[in-house]
Write a protein that binds this DNA or RNA. Structure first.
Lengths: 148, 148
DNA sequence: CTAGTAGTTGCAATAGTTTGCATTAAGCAT
DNA sequence: ATGCTTAATGCAAACTATTGCAACTACTAG
C-alpha cells in the first residue's frame, strides 16, 4: 500500500470521504514531503488529475487539518505552508522571518511551555501546531537585521 | 501633545518621515487601541483623510513594525491584527482559534522559552512578537472542539 | 528660503485565500 | 445492485494582501 493509500485509509477512518481528488492530493503531498504551499501542491497534483481546482486543495487541506493529519504554519510572509504530521516525530516549527527557512523544534521544548501556559492562563496551546517566528542563527550572525 | 503626535515624534526619531497620512493613521490607532485589523483602521482613518489608500495602511504598518512600534499577529484565520507596543508592558499574545479572542501573556513566560530555544537551536525568538495559537479556557470547556 | 534627494503615496495589476451555490458522487442501507 | 443522503467538487465572485511604477513631497543641505 502506497503512502497515499495509507493516508486515504486514515482519513476514511475519521469519517471523511475518499474521492479521486483527495487520493491524488494525498499521494502528491506524501510524495513531495517537506513544508509545502498550496500553489506548489496544486501544480503538482493537477498534472496527475487535470481539471482539479485549487479550491479543492484548500478545502482538502482544511479537512486534513481538522483530521489532525497536517499542521499549518504561517511564516509571516509568503503563502501559508503545511506539512504532514508524523505522529512518531512530533515537532513545532521555527520560521526565520529573514530567510524564510523553516526549522523543526523538538516537541519537548514546546510541551514544557504549553504546560506552563495552560497552568497560568487556562489557554491550551497545541504543541503539534506551534510555530514560532524569529531570526535564525545564520541571519542573526550576518547581521542583516537585529531583532526589533 | 496628543498620543498620535507622540507617536509621530517617535517615528521621526527613528528616521522615518511624518506625512499627513501617517499622522492620521497614528492618531487613529492610538485612539482606537486594542487589537486592530487593517480594514478597521482603514475605514476609521479614511473618515479623517478622504482619499487615503488602504495600501498606505499596510505600508505604514510595516514601517511601524520595522520601527518596533507595533506587533503583528496572525490568528490563523481572519485578517492579520496588530497592536501598538507598550514598552512598559511587553507581552505576547494568545489567540483562540475557536472564538478569535486575543489574550495577553506575560513576557516572562515567553522570555523563558525564548532563552531555552536560542540555547538549543541558535534561533532567536522575539518575545515582543510572539503569538501562540490554541484554544482558550472558555472554548475548551464548551467542548466545541477538542484540540487536534 | 530654495533646490535636490530619497522616502512615501496612490493606482493598478497580481497573487493568495475564502465563500456561495448548483452539481456531482461516495458511502450507507436496503 | 439500486436508491438515498449528504459530503465534496468546480466555478465564479469577493476578499485580503503584496508589488511595480510614476508622481509627489518631507526633510536636509546649502
Amino acid at each position: 500500500m502506497s503512502c497515499g493509500e495509507k493516508l486515504a485509509e486514515e482519513i476514511r477512518g475519521k469519517g471523511f470521504r475518499v474521492t479521486p481528488q483527495r487520493g491524488v492530493i494525498l499521494e502528491t503531498i506524501a510524495h513531495m514531503g517537506g513544508h509545502l504551499s498550496v500553489p506548489e501542491v496544486f501544480s503538482a497534483a493537477r498534472d496527475r488529475l487535470p481539471g482539479l481546482n485549487i479550491t479543492t486543495i484548500y478545502r482538502t487541506l482544511e479537512t486534513l487539518h481538522r483530521a489532525g493529519m497536517v499542521d499549518l504554519f504561517y511564516s509571516g510572509s509568503g503563502p501559508t505552508r503545511f506539512a504532514l504530521r508524523d505522529p512518531d516525530q512530533a515537532h513545532g516549527h521555527l520560521v526565520c522571518s529573514e530567510c524564510e527557512q523553516v526549522m523543526d523544534i523538538d516537541e519537548s521544548l514546546i510541551a514544557h511551555l504549553a504546560e506552563e501556559v495552560v497552568r497560568e492562563t487556562g489557554f491550551s496551546i497545541d504543541p503539534h501546531h506551534l510555530t514560532l517566528v524569529g531570526v535564525c542563527d545564520d541571519c542573526l550572525s550576518e547581521g542583516k537585521r537585529r531583532i526589533s
